[in-house]
Each structure stands twice: as C-alpha cells, then as structure tokens.
Simulated scan of single mutants.
Amino acid sequence: MRREQCVSLFRKVMDSVCLLLRSHPQLTTQVLSSERYEQIQMCEDDNVTLLCVQMWIHTCTGKDFLSEFSDDSALLLLNEAVGQLAVSSASSVGGASVRLILLMANQQEARVKPLLLSFRGLDSLLDKDWRGRGFDQEVDQLIAIIQSDARILPQACSERVRAACLIQAAWRSFQTRRRLRSLNRAVCKVQRRYRSRRRQQQEHEEEQRGEEELRFQVCVRRQQARRKFHQKQRQLLQLLPPDQVQWYLQECERGAAVVIQSYWRGFRERRRYNTHTLRHTHTQQHAARTLQRAVRLFLQSGEQRRSPPLSVVTATEADSFLSPSGAIAARARDSHNALLQAGRLPWWRTGGDEDTFSPAPLQELEAELGGLFVGGQIQI
C-alpha cells in the first residue's frame, strides 16, 4: 500500500473519531489516555502528527465542546499540544499546535489560562523556536496571553500570600493569647497552692512553737515551785532547833511514805474489786435470776395443770387456790435489793467483812419456799 493511501485512510479514521467526540465529549479522556492513541503519538511521521492535531482543532470548533470538557481532559490535550511544540520541528505541526492552544484559550479562557501557567518557559520556547515560521501573529497572541496571565499571577499570589499571612498572624496571636491565659491560670493556681501550703506550714510551726513554749513554761513553773518549796523547807529548818531537825525529816519521810502507801493500796483494792468481786457478784446474780425464772415457770405450769376450768369453779374452790406467793415474792425482792446494795458498798465501808447481810430473814424464806434460793449467802 502506498504512503498516500495510508495517509488518506488515516485521515478518514481521524475524521470518524472527530465526529464521534463531537457527539460524545465524555469520551475525550478515554481517547487521550488509550494505548492506541499513545502509539500514534509516538510515531515520528509529521503527517500523522499533523492529522492528530487537526482532528482536535476540528473537534474543538464544535459548539459547546470545550464547555463539556473536564479539567483532566483539557490538561491532557494541552500536554499533547505543548509536547508537539517541544518535540516537533515541522512548521505545519507547530502552527497547528499554536492554533489549537489559542482556540482553547479563546473559548475557555477562565479554565485554560490557569492551566497554561503550569507550563513554565512556554513563552520563551515560542519566542525562540517558532518565530519566523509564517504564523508570527498567532505566536505573539499566545505569548501575550501567557505573559498577561503571568503578570496577573504574581498579584494574585501576593494577595493570597498576604491573606495567608494575615490568617496565620491572627491564628498565632490567638494561640499566644490562649497560651498566656492558660499560663496565667496555671501560675495563679501554683501560687495559690504554694501560699496555702506555706500558710499551713507556718500555722503548724506556730502551733509547735506554742506547744514548746507552753511545755517550757510548765517546766519553768515546776522548777520555780520546786525551788520555792525547797527554800521554804530550808527556812523552816533554819527556824527549828538543832535537836529537832532529824525528827522533822523523819516525820516528812513517814508522811510521804503514808501517802504513797495509801495511793498504792487504793489502786490495788480497786483493781481487786473490779476483777474479782464484781465478776463473782455478777455470776451469783445471774444464777439467782436463772433459777427464779425456772421455778416461776414450773409453778405456773403446775397451777395451770391443777386448776379446774373457770366455768365450773365456785367461790369456795377459788379461795382454796389462793397462795401467799405475792408476799413471798415481795420479801424476796426486798432481800435481793438489800444484798445488791450491800455488794455495792466500798471496801472501806465494809472493813473487809463480806458477810454484812443478816441471814436470818433468808433462812425464814428458805423454810417457807422449801429450799428455794432467794439471794445472798446462807449457811445451812
């Protein structure tokens, strides 16, 4: 197949792709990123490259084609055009690429101009390599667009930088103020705790100092009182005749010994009374109460068994069931109270004699109750 036939067939294929993309612009990204199209771009034939660029020019001239373009598709198409300007040396390919970029910039200025700024050095490339090729006017227009955007960009960047600096300054000042407030609160809290702890320590030290001073004053007063007492004794000894000094000292020693012995005997008797007498008395009282309770229950149960029902009891039978238990119980209670009162007397009232209660009434009660223990000690 001849070269001219291949080129004509390839032109028909590109025309078909152009018609397809005009009807379905969403397929542009798939076409630009397909492997087949990448193989076509790798071809070194200028005619093939020119047909590809012309296909995109015819496609972009369609109504509202670029408006339905996505940013990714526009960037891919610009990459292809700028790449042809950087790689190819054919004037036809360069002119077609410049016209494609101008077409996109004129139709979608707001979207394409920021994308052109990402290709740094494009204006210098156009000025050095593509002037004097027969499309200088188009090259000048494209350079003017790029440089106008480049002049606007520093202003926008400077405004953005200024705004960012203002925001950062405001945020840093806010953080600094908040940190200062937190530091002030923390410092106040630390100072408050330190002052309270120091105040507590001072109060504790003052209390200790007061207690020490009080103890010291007590010791000093005791020493002064002891000194005064010794001075008074010395003065009294000076007033006594010499032959009575020894007798006076012996009397003082005897009085001190009597006081010490009295305190010791009182302590010993109280301890003995608390440990032995009270325990023995409590045991006796508890045993007496237990026995009395058992006897009363036994007597009540016996009376209930012997007594007839109230419906058949006559006055004569009721008199026969009367017993002197009330008087006996009263006498037993009196004797028990007397025994308790006698047991509570101190040792110096009893004189060491524990049998202070007369057993005569108790013997009579024992005889009447038939050997029932009422309270106290009975010698039978």
Rank of each mutant, 00 (worst) to 15 (best):
H230C: 07
R270L: 10
V374D: 02
G83N: 11
L236H: 13
L183G: 03
R349H: 06
A330F: 09
Y273K: 01
V139W: 00
A257Y: 10
V139I: 05
A169N: 14
A360S: 10
R296W: 02
E35I: 08
A288F: 02
I143G: 00
I167Y: 12
V17K: 07
A338M: 08
H24R: 15
V187D: 10
A288M: 12
W247H: 15
L100R: 02
T277L: 05
N274T: 05
Y273L: 03
T275H: 15
C18T: 06
T176G: 10
K232C: 05
R331S: 11
I145G: 00
I101V: 12
S358Y: 04
R11S: 15
P359E: 14
E211K: 13
F298I: 00
V13M: 11
R279C: 10
R227F: 03
A315V: 06
I167V: 13
A105L: 01
S34E: 03
R133Q: 15
N47T: 12
L126D: 03
A110V: 06
W247P: 04
A90M: 09
S262A: 13
Q201T: 11
E212G: 05
Q201G: 05
Q200A: 14
S173G: 09
R296S: 05
L125E: 05
L32Y: 00
R331W: 10
T275N: 09
S70G: 14
R177K: 07
E44K: 15
H282N: 14
S67T: 12
L116D: 04
Q202V: 09
A81H: 04
N337Y: 11
S323E: 13
P308G: 06
G302V: 08
A329S: 09
Q231Y: 04
T277K: 04
L51G: 01
P324F: 04
A329I: 02
V259L: 13
R198E: 09
V93M: 03
Q250F: 06
C157L: 15
Q200Y: 08
A338S: 08
S325W: 06
R198C: 09
Q363E: 11
N184R: 15
L166D: 15
R227V: 08
E211R: 15
R289I: 00
N337D: 10
N106Y: 11
E206T: 11
P114L: 07
G375L: 02
S67R: 09
R226G: 01
E80I: 09
A256N: 14
R215T: 05
Q246H: 12
L249W: 07
R349G: 00
D140C: 04
Q304S: 13
K189P: 00
L237P: 01
S158K: 13
G266A: 10
R197D: 13
Y37W: 11
L21K: 00
G62F: 12
G326R: 06
I167T: 15
G302L: 15
Q284I: 04
L369D: 03
L125C: 07
R185A: 12
R226C: 07
S67A: 09
G352D: 00
G370E: 07
V190T: 13
S358G: 00
L76M: 08
V48Y: 13
R272H: 08
M55C: 05
A169T: 14
R306M: 12
D72P: 01
E251M: 11
H276P: 00
L291I: 07
P309L: 14
L214K: 13
L77W: 02
D355V: 01
C60F: 12
D129E: 14
G121P: 01
A287D: 10
T59D: 07
R22K: 14
Q141W: 02
P242F: 09
